[in-house]
Design a protein around this nucleic acid. Sequence first.
DNA 1: CTGAGTGCAAACAGTTTGCATTACT
DNA 2: AGTAATGCAAACTGTTTGCACTCAG
Lengths: 159, 159
Amino acid sequence: MEARSAAVRARGTAGGGGREGWAGHAESRVRAAGHRASTARSRVIELLGEQECVLTARDIADRLRGEGVGVATVYRALELLEGLGLIQRLDVGEGTARYEPALPSGEHHHHLVCDTCGRVSAFADPQLERAIARVAGRLDYRVGAHDVILRGECPSCST
Amino acid sequence: MEARSAAVRARGTAGGGGREGWAGHAESRVRAAGHRASTARSRVIELLGEQECVLTARDIADRLRGEGVGVATVYRALELLEGLGLIQRLDVGEGTARYEPALPSGEHHHHLVCDTCGRVSAFADPQLERAIARVAGRLDYRVGAHDVILRGECPSCST
DNA sequence: CTGAGTGCAAACAGTTTGCATTACT
DNA sequence: AGTAATGCAAACTGTTTGCACTCAG
């Protein structure tokens, strides 16, 4: 079995991959929610859409600073996108939040964090999802979402 | 099925519950690792042992300030205890880490976070553990630990 | 005595917020 | 023109660190 995220290509604006679709989708949802189409926010969406793996706010801010986009704007954009359910925040515990596009299909994955290099990768497993759904049903709790984080050593660090 | 943590009573220094055992265990492990038995650190351990649910560093610092224990010491104690595997850090994403005793038996649970009141509770589920073990085995990754967080609305908030 | 451990305060990192300015609509 | 959105810088929050002092061994 393989870590799913690796299968998603980061392709700039060219290809027809799933993420390009996401950026467009996000843009129109933001529009539909009554927000203006500002360039700064579009850059943030674009960047998130191009990326195959999770990005920190700092990653985004650093790469957009050259284009005159400020940190505050990045955070505000992320806040908006998260509020609309267009991105998902991931907290692996090093004090820095990471963000990734939430696919409209609802299809999602979970994360592997390397204790050595800190890199975050992704995996998906339907049986795990089923186990979670089952336990969520048992509990006296209205469960709406879930995160699973596996920690250990990635292949390149364990050599 | 029930949220397990609720079954663990917080009983001060009186009873024979599992956590009292933990405090003693932790204290001797710290000793064995070559550290002195300072009062401040003992207070932190004691407090963690009495508590039935996760505590933030601030919770601990606030409650120990009266006894002259400083914030830095709390963080240093938590760092040490985590390094020895005696406590487990939990990050639910609001920027504040939470800590709870790690039982020597290796027995552990996962957490429910209420999106409304922010309260954190616990649950355990052997089948979920099995599902995680299975997926961990499949992946090309040396998985050493895992966290599962379910988010939603707790019974008292969903009324 | 000696140094591990401490408390305080200053330093830090990530994130949020106030406000004057910019630029979609 | 009107106002959402921005950029900057200052404010905040949680955590870490430098340093002189204390107390367990």
